[in-house]
Design a protein around this nucleic acid. Structure first.
Lengths: 240, 240
DNA sequence: CGGCCAGTTGACGTCTTTCAACTTTGGTGG
DNA sequence: CCACCAAAGTTGAAAGACGTCAACTGGCCG
């Protein structure tokens, strides 16, 4: 994992470098700093000076904040090809999240000044950064709406479906969320407790919706999960 | 309110035009469309095609979404000098929020293509737009954290303090939130019900913290509200 | 003057958390 | 290779925060 990084599919198809000709992509990636981060290690901690813009080349990261009284909140998982730290490097003095690798990962990064120059030189890059920010903004807004209006069960369903989209891997019996994922993690994503997550998953397991074990969730019936997430009429039983 | 708009303090100090020389500001504002929106009227509705970028010159707006089952969520209030619709016009086909004037207002706007040209011509404008997005992003993240980890009372305290910062007006007995604000509005900002808001405000009124009436909230002891919002040691409780 | 809208408050229900005790799983070292 | 241990998960019971429903008050405006 040392040489051929520039033409990895994750980087070529990356939202981050979208719309840029191959030669510009190479130029931009060429001046990036590269750094491997091992599983369970932190790339940086909440409160560190926000001086770099990042792009994930390989692996998987988790961004989380911890409140003053110690409660953790998972802000999001980062997949290969996604940028992160853009907003912070642009606006803040320190990063508002801690960043941990949940798989062995490789991150590319530019310091703030370099990235500013790059954006100036490649306006397309600036445009992309902006669109990404706009997109994340929208996601956050949706999450606020969810938290304000929806019950726990539905929020968990949505969280799982998001994970399926981002890191789902098809297997014979369904879609596996290809990530070590504890009850606690799900709780921190949805604003509930690990106990409630455990109860909900148990119930779904009974119903044949999912199959879950230690740090592992397999979705057996994604469409039924969707009906829970969207409050559609209960599929198999058309009574009422 | 028809002629001298360009040099209004709200526009000069606007985050939106920050860092631009006066003559560029005039140029940018010069090509803007201007439109008054009367109190209780909608500038646009959730689902309308997102084709314009806006800047509020005067008045006050409320951005809100309504869920499929009819529950409303207030995303934020907009004060003079603030831009809005930037993320949507950049990324989406339709606006994700409805925008209503809570006071008689005047909005400036540019269509998407014009705004793109302006950003190209005045890179500083693009930079500002980006920083604003980054800032909003951070706010949203904070709100998610709040919703996930804090009790209703504290969320209401925080919401009021935010409103104080944005639209507080000093009067003899405290700080008045200078906006028609119902219990329902506060509930939609904090993810609770108007009943709970009413109970909390009543309780605070008993304690001499606030004074509230129909569509009106006056903060008598902001510092004590802060202790509720931040969970500081339960402050030396003076008599009263 | 009547109707309407915002607000208040009690009673009650329920979703979710909290606490505690327990089981299961998987990695590690003897 | 197996036993052990810590971490992850499960589940019952009880408490509590908050939502829901209903009845009521009060101010405002046509």
């Amino acid at each position: 994992m040392t040489e051929p990084v520039y033409d990895q599919p994750a980087l070529v198809e990356s939202e981050f470098l979208q719309g840029l000709p191959a030669q510009d992509r190479v130029a931009i990636l060429g001046v990036a700093q590269r750094r491997p981060v091992e599983r369970d290690h932190f790339l940086l901690r909440q409160g560190d000076p926000a001086d770099r813009v990042y792009l994930l080349a390989q692996g998987r990261l988790r961004l989380s904040t911890v409140t003053t009284d110690g409660q953790e909140v998972i802000v999001r998982y980062v997949a290969p090809g996604e940028g992160f730290g853009v907003a912070a490097a642009l606006k803040d003095i320190t990063y508002p999240v801690s960043i941990e690798a949940v798989e062995n990962s490789l991150v590319m990064s530019w310091d703030r000044a370099t990235f500013a120059q790059l954006m100036e030189r490649y306006p397309r890059l600036a445009m992309q950064a902006m669109q990404t920010l706009a997109f994340r903004m929208r996601e956050m807004q949706d999450r606020v709406r969810e938290l304000q209006t929806e019950r726990v069960e539905r929020r968990i369903a949505r969280a799982l479906l998001r994970l399926v989209r981002q890191t789902g891997r098809k297997v014979e019996t369904g879609v596996l969320i290809d990530l070590p994922l504890t009850r606690q993690d799900l709780a921190e994503m949805t604003g509930t407790t690990l106990y409630t997550v455990s109860r909900v998953l148990s119930q779904w397991e009974q119903a044949g919706l999912v199959e879950s074990g230690r740090e592992r969730v397999l979705i057996r019936a994604p469409h039924r999960l969707v009906t829970i997430a969207e409050d559609l009429p209960p599929q198999p039983t058309p009574d009422k």
